[in-house]
């Protein structure tokens, strides 16, 4: 049975967002591409079920993040579909210094704090959504975000603008 047509729409609408989220987390665009494409493959393989979920994108995002933190990422190197496709990749300009600074600043955060910053500011999840996803209290998420913001501002040289 062919999968519902809106798999393509969902892919078109969310592949980029999810890739950027994982890219900001890893600091490595290629890893992010691999993980997100794999998550969509797993969604497509069971699309009849996934498409009936209330939040299919949430399922795909969860799979992508789980993959990102799993041994799949470590073992995928020899299997990377991107490495096989690289020669046809569109040429793009290098990153601007400000983006490099942002990624470098994110990389200095502990993993959990980095993850909540990405989920909050790259995935636009609310604090209650992040708390539910991470299985912690909302206050814990707020605390992580506060510490992360302070550290990011210090690294990016924007701390002096913090409102009193």
């Amino acid at each position: 049975m062919a999968p519902p047509a809106n798999f393509d729409q969902l892919y078109a609408a969310h592949y980029g967002d999810l890739t950027v989220q994982l890219y900001m987390y890893f600091g490595d665009r290629q890893e992010a591409h691999d993980v997100v494409q794999e998550a969509f493959c797993r969604a497509y393989a069971r699309w009849r079920t996934v498409s009936r979920y209330e939040d299919p994108v949430g399922w795909i995002r969860r799979v992508a993040w789980n993959l990102a933190l799993s041994k799949w990422r470590r073992t995928r190197t020899a299997l990377s579909f991107l490495s096989r496709q690289r020669r046809t990749e569109v040429r793009i300009e290098g990153p601007g210094p400000e983006r490099v600074a942002v990624i470098a600043a994110l990389a200095t955060l502990p993993e959990q704090q980095r993850r909540v910053v990405v989920l909050r500011y790259m995935a636009d999840l609310t604090v209650p959504e992040i708390a539910a996803r991470e299985g912690v209290a909302e206050g814990t998420v707020k605390s992580w975000l506060h510490r992360s913001r302070t550290a990011l501002a210090a690294h990016l040289g924007t701390a002096e603008e913090t409102p009193s």
Partner: peptide, 21 residues
């Protein structure tokens, strides 16, 4: 800070332009 938020938003926007599914 507004500036930090702006940098994050710009990084997101710029990175989105470079994603080719």
């Amino acid at each position: 800070t507004d500036r930090t938020e702006l940098l994050l938003a710009e990084a997101r926007t710029q990175a989105m332009r470079e994603v080719f599914p």
